[in-house]
C-alpha cells in the first residue's frame, strides 16, 4: 500500500469542488419545484453537538436504563470502548424523538425490564438491581430458545435493543475503529496487500 498516494479527506473534497464548479457552469436552469427534492445539506447533517447529550424523548430514568443496557450488550474491553462510550443510547433516543412507534418500543420495553426485575429482585428496578441480576435477566431474553408467553415481550424488546445498539455502535467513530474499517478515502490506485491474500489462501482449503 505504501506506493499509493492517499489524498486527505479535505484534499478530496476540494478536488471534487473544483470538478463541480466546472460541471455547474452553463445554462443550468433550476425551476422552483426542484427545491422540494433537495436533500438536507451535508453541512447541516454534520452539525456537531457539543457537550453531553440531553435526552429528547426518554425520561432521565429510561435513558439511564437504556445506557446501562447498551453497555451490557457491547461492553468496553481491552480492544475498544463500548456502546456507552459510543453514545448508543443517544442515537436511540434521537430516533424515539422522531417516531412515536419507536418511542413506544423503548418506553414499553424498559417498563417491562423494570417490572420484571422488581418481581425478581425484591422490588428493585433494572438499573438499581445488582449487575448479576441484570445479566441473569438478559440471559433469559437474549435467546430465541426461551420464547414463551412469559418471556416473549422481553425477547422482542431485547431483539430491538440489541439490533439498534449494534447499529449505533458500529456506525460510530469508535465502532469504525473497532472493526478496523479504513475505506471511503481517495486513492490514486487500488490494490490489496499481499499479506492479506497470503493469510486467506493459507487458511483456505484451496491454499
Amino acid at each position: 500500500m505504501s506506493e499509493q498516494t492517499d489524498y486527505s479527506r479535505r484534499d478530496l473534497l476540494r478536488r471534487i469542488g473544483g470538478a463541480l464548479s466546472l460541471a455547474a457552469a452553463g445554462p443550468m436552469i433550476l425551476p422552483a419545484q426542484d427545491a422540494q427534492h433537495v436533500h438536507q445539506a451535508i453541512a447541516d447533517d454534520k452539525a456537531a453537538q457539543p457537550g453531553p447529550y440531553r435526552p429528547k424523548a426518554l425520561t432521565a430514568h429510561e435513558y439511564a436504563t437504556l445506557d446501562r443496557l447498551s453497555g451490557l450488550i457491547l461492553p468496553a474491553d481491552q480492544h475498544s470502548p463500548g456502546a456507552i462510550e459510543a453514545g448508543a443510547a443517544a442515537f436511540i433516543d434521537f430516533l424515539c424523538a422522531a417516531s412515536d412507534e419507536m418511542l413506544a418500543i423503548y418506553t414499553g420495553g424498559i417498563a417491562w425490564l423494570d417490572d420484571t426485575m422488581r418481581r425478581r429482585a425484591g422490588g428493585q428496578d433494572f438499573l438499581s438491581a445488582p449487575p448479576a441480576q441484570q445479566t441473569a435477566l438478559l440471559d433469559l431474553i437474549a435467546w430465541r430458545k426461551n420464547r414463551s408467553p412469559e418471556w416473549n415481550p422481553g425477547i422482542d424488546f431485547f431483539t430491538w435493543a440489541r439490533r439498534m445498539v449494534v447499529d449505533a455502535y458500529y456506525t460510530s467513530p469508535i465502532g469504525f475503529k473497532e472493526l478496523g474499517y479504513m475505506g471511503n478515502s481517495a486513492m490514486s490506485s487500488f490494490s490489496v496487500p499481499a499479506e492479506a491474500v497470503e493469510y486467506v489462501m493459507k487458511r483456505s482449503p484451496l491454499g
Binding site: 455547474a24 443550468m28 419545484q33 426542484d34 427534492h37 436533500h39 447533517d45 454534520k46 430516533l95 467513530p173
Partner: peptide
C-alpha cells in the same frame, strides 16, 4: 423529476455518524 445537483444530492463521502439519524 427534478434537476440533479451532484454537489447536494450525491453522498458518497458522507459517513453514517455525520448524520444524526445515521
Amino acid at each position: 423529476g427534478p434537476m440533479l445537483n451532484p454537489a447536494r444530492d450525491f453522498k458518497e463521502h458522507v459517513l453514517p455518524y455525520q448524520v444524526d439519524h445515521r
